[in-house]
Design a binder for these strands. Structure first.
Length: 595
RNA sequence: GUGCCCGUAGCUCAGUUGGAUAGAGCACCGGCCUUCUAAGCCGGGGGUCCCGAGUUCGAAUCUCGGCGGGCACGCCA
């Protein structure tokens, strides 16, 4: 789905190389994987090709000599000019008419512009958020939430069939602790004097859950034995928290297709099932500790050292044979499964359900988990190349120059809801998507709130709004843009800035494809930045002289077509990022004079 | 100690999978609104791309070795 313009250049070079081979001028044992990229410097033409340099070695010729051969052999009628530059670059300049066609292409495709022309047929699952249902979504999840969502949008645009999934860790000690806390809060609603124990959740939301339980069931559980109230308090707590989580996700503009329960994997036998498969495949053994246990010195303060005495032996999985540091336990001595076992069953279920690719977005603190899952899948005979892990690095929240400390245990949560409330959903999302996922960064609340009027997100949105307002103005002025444009009208787009804008517009499909391939949504954002900057420059420069709407009917229609194409392009890109594309933006409040 | 991630302008970060003279925003200085929004534009200062080797036509980018920061290294989830 390369842009037509880039395709012209690549094809022209490939055809020429083949012709040179046929004529005996080049050996060309294999077509080189040369690049066709827009150069950094606009003066270097529309696309720069490094084919001559790549062929220098295999052909035993100088790059510039090969470049000469290619230039002489070129026959394409889309090309206006080719120059040999630097060490042997071929700098192509396309004919204006080819560049101008971009506007037509975009308008013709409409909302399909920027999306893959054809479905890839690949079914891909993106798993993200996957928070414990022991509390609300907080800032610790925020980055992965938006990054995962944008990756899903990106893959969808790239033509994949995407399923978004949320894995609910609703099994084990943590949810049991939740249940116990809920029960105490429930008891307190009837005036009973009970104190929370260490490790229980002191935050207010559990108080609310306790109130709701007593409102629903009255004193029903007060005299009941633990075997009855505990399961009820657990499931009620999870249910309430999930409701809260779903509501937060909705506010964040994030949606999941499937919520998958860890507890269900245990109850359905899927966990036992995957263990049986491993046993059948001779991938397990019984032992007191992993046979290939690493005896490297560990930091005395590490948790590994702290919990060393709890290791009693059981059933081990031979993950060490497939890239993991050592084998991992999957069944404790008492036969119960550990977290990893359920996660292996879960990942197996993804492939059983027919997904071709599985992408996990999770925090960098789970990075050590990756090799185990990969090894576990390989031990099932599943190619682990079908799995990709996007590790979202830890983020710090900074206010007044200081880190905001949060702790679930202490009850000092910073909820995603509060963050969105404070800075707005678009600003929030934008701030996360501005960075690559695997680099740490500080979320400076002062920077995004105090300076809200010059926050980058508004710069972006203003670009779209400006396009919209010009189109609106044209309609009011009696020269509406009707969605169609002729070659003659397009031919009026001769200003260098117009040419550059059209060229940048034409690159969206390549940017989307590249970003999807790399699972890096932020590339789309930086592409928008360049596109919008180009537009603002154009607008400002010609504000007094060459306005979009003028007495020249052909020029007006040509320019309106370009503006409409730009608006369409931005809308598509914003859609991938999940940021809204406003038609109009209110002028910002007057800043107090700071002079 | 071992593994993974990061180190680019005063600050926050990009850098098109190895390309040409390393960019943007913020901050600072100086300009631009009678016309389609000045939430914008133009100009200026600001760099040991952490350090050192190596790979090649060519390195911020790849390899190795250091230094600095973060996250992990559990039969918690």
């Amino acid at each position: 789905m390369a842009t037509p313009m880039r395709h012209h250049v690549r094809k022209a070079v490939e055809d020429t190389l083949q012709a040179l081979k046929a004529a005996g001028a080049l050996k060309l044992e294999a077509m080189p994987a040369f690049s066709v990229d827009p150069p950094k410097q606009e003066s270097h033409g529309d696309f720069s090709v490094n084919a001559a340099m790549m062929l220098a070695k295999p052909e035993g010729k100088k790059p510039r000599d090969i470049a000469e051969l290619i230039v002489k052999g070129l026959t394409s009628d889309a090309i206006a000019k080719v120059e040999i530059a630097g060490p042997g670059f071929l700098n192509f300049t396309l004919k204006d008419s080819v560049v101008q066609q971009t506007a037509l292409e975009v308008l013709k495709l409409g909302d399909a512009y920027g999306r893959a022309h054809a479905k890839t047929g690949t079914r891909v699952m993106v798993e993200y958020v996957s928070a414990n249902p022991t509390g609300p979504i907080h800032i610790g999840h925020a980055r992965g939430t938006f990054v995962g969502d944008a990756i899903a949008r990106l893959l969808d645009a790239a033509g994949h069939e995407v399923t978004r999934e949320f894995y609910i860790n609703d099994y084990g000690k943590q949810v049991e602790t939740l249940g116990r806390t809920v029960y105490k809060r429930y008891q307190q609603t009837f005036g009973e004097k009970v104190e929370l124990g260490p490790g229980e959740y002191p935050a207010d939301y559990v108080i609310e859950i306790g109130k709701k339980l007593s409102a629903r069931d009255g004193k029903k559980w007060l005299a009941a034995p633990e075997s009855e109230w505990l399961p009820e308090c657990i499931s009620f707590g999870i249910e309430q928290n999930l409701e809260m989580i779903r509501a937060s996700l909705e506010k964040a503009g994030v949606r999941h297709d499937v919520f998958s329960s860890e507890a269900a994997l245990h109850h359905s036998g899927a966990v036992k099932g995957v263990v049986d498969v491993y046993k059948k495949r001779d991938a397990t053994y019984e032992a007191d500790e992993a046979r290939n246990r690493k005896n490297t010195e560990r930091n005395a303060e590490s948790k590994a050292a702290q919990y060393a005495d709890r290791q009693l032996g059981g059933t081990f999985l031979k993950t060490g044979e497939h890239g993991d540091d050592e084998d991992r336990i999957i069944l404790r001595k008492d036969g119960t499964a550990v977290y990893l076992t359920a996660d292996l069953a879960y990942h197996k279920s993804k492939f059983d359900r027919g997904f071709d690719r599985c992408i996990d977005v999770f925090g960098a603190d789970h990075g050590g988990h990756v090799p185990r899952i990969r090894a576990g899948m390989r031990l099932l005979g599943i190619d682990d190349k079908r799995m990709e892990f996007v590790l979202v690095q830890i983020m710090r929240i900074v206010r007044n120059g200081e880190e905001v400390k949060v702790s679930k245990r202490k009850g000092t949560l910073f909820e995603l809801d509060d963050l969105i409330e404070e800075v707005g959903a678009d600003v929030c999302r934008f701030t996360f998507l501005m960075r690559t996922a695997n680099a740490q960064f500080d979320f400076d609340l002062d920077a995004v709130t105090k300076r809200s009027s010059d926050n980058p997100v508004f710069y972006f949105q203003y670009g779209h709004a400006r396009c919209a307002q010009i189109l609106k103005k044209a309609a009011e002025a009696g020269t509406p843009f009707l969605g169609q444009v002729t070659t003659e009208q397009l031919a009026t787009l001769t200003l260098p800035e117009e040419r550059m804008l059209l060229k940048r517009i034409s690159l969206l499909p390549d940017v989307v494809a590249g970003a999807a391939d790399a699972l890096e949504p932020h590339r789309v954002l930086y592409y928008c930045q360049e596109l919008i900057a180009g537009f603002h420059q154009y607008y400002s420069k010609y504000k007094q002289t060459e306005r979009v709407i003028s007495d020249d009917a052909a020029k007006t229609q040509g320019r309106l077509a370009m503006v409409a194409a730009l608006k369409q392009t931005l809308k598509a890109a914003f859609g991938i990022l999940g940021v809204s594309a406003p038609e109009y933006m209110e002028a910002p409040p007057e800043e107090a004079e700071a002079k």
